[in-house]
Design a protein around this nucleic acid. Structure first.
Lengths: 218, 218
DNA sequence: ACCTGAACACCGTTCAAGT
DNA sequence: ACCTGAACACCGTTCAAGT
């Protein structure tokens, strides 16, 4: 009904679609409604074009999803070369996590699609800092995974109950209602520790634990 | 065409569907073809029933998926009470990982669905071992997440390129073809370290790094 | 109680046709 | 070169009907 209005430009014309526009709209849609809300048809509709117009700029939905993750990788600034290596690793992890917090739909896709060019830059940058950190090569190899797994695992777990953002409390309440404090006291206590805000610094705390472990290992 | 044969029982009758049968078939299907291959229609077809028969035993596809993850949690044996606490934590992490390796489709769902009863038992068991480990309560809280994130994050990352299992080599080859050793030498080297099998012990190595960090923290 | 078929409101993608 | 509509082969789920 209201199709085609947003992209209309001047009477009788409209700005033609391009890859960047399609990508940006897809990211915005995922930010607002999660990955499940992004369908080629709804995306085309929102852009004011017929579905098949998208396929002039993107080979398939899978390719679009891969482009979306790569766009998130592009948002992570390169590690600060002025920092001592392990401090740069730490800051890079925080920056990566920040990008995932902005785009909570990204972590699962990050793991499912092959790295695109931006993500390869992200990899190379982290590997480079680790290489000049003084860690032995094997420890550096493991460190790469330890840091990445923590960033992704933590963010995934954290957002599991939180998307869409507004029903976090609801989902926790539903969960608590299903667990008896008599049979599962520690689980109930653990959830309450989260509700008490204890979770805030947990990401950095475990990150430091990992980084310390790497450094001590050599 | 060949519908309805598997479940046929005796002339004119067949064993009626039940929740356990639906669940087992869904798990088998996911094991064989991944989570994307599981549709209500294909599942019903394989069982030899009309689609809607499934809905007598399962409220929705979402509920079925939640049951599937919980079935994986049920496969993890409880921590060995005879072991020293941190050794039991370690063994429990390895057992959990083993279940994920058997059911590579499970980790993403684990994070997306609210814990069911089996997974709540899994949580309570790990929290109980941590509670009697001598760690202070805050460290125990973080330890719970550190261990879980490692198990899930590592397995997710590992299987990202490996499912379906047989095209691991293909996907790695495709990836390597897209990366230049001139601009991204460390990334290329990192991938080759994986191909050289360096990855095998990496899971336990990083796990120990985390466990050592927890113990040292108190 | 359990199963079924038809129908509804969706998907991604191919293809031939338009400009 | 870019866009379109119709069509194809799928989805999950509601509903009324059968036994």
């Amino acid at each position: 009904m209201a199709r085609r209005e947003e992209a209309r430009h001047r009477p009788g014309g409209r700005t033609p679609l391009d890859r960047a526009t399609v990508l940006a709209a897809a990211v915005a849609m995922a930010d607002a409604e999660g990955t499940a809300g992004v369908s080629m048809r709804r995306l085309a509709d929102r852009l004011g074009f017929a579905v098949m117009a998208l396929y002039n700029h993107v080979r398939s939905k899978d390719e679009l999803l891969a482009l979306m993750v790569d766009a998130v990788a592009a948002e992570v600034p390169p590690p600060d070369p002025g920092l001592p290596p392990m401090a740069a690793v730490r800051a890079h992890a925080l920056d990566t996590r920040a990008a995932f917090v902005r785009h909570p739909w990204a972590p699962p896709l990050w793991l499912e699609s092959l790295p695109g060019p931006e993500r390869v830059d992200h990899m190379e940058a982290l590997l480079a800092v680790l290489a000049r950190s003084g860690l032995d090569p094997e420890t550096a190899h493991h460190g790469f995974h330890a840091v990445n797994n923590h960033v992704i695992g933590y963010t995934l777990q954290e957002q599991a109950m939180a998307f869409p953002a507004d029903d976090l409390a609801d989902r926790v309440a539903v969960f608590l209602a299903s667990v008896s404090a008599d049979t599962h006291p520690l689980t109930v206590a653990h959830v309450h520790e989260h509700l008490g805000g204890r979770t805030e610094s947990s990401f950095e705390l475990v990150l430091d634990l990992i980084l310390d472990g790497l450094v001590r290992r050599g």
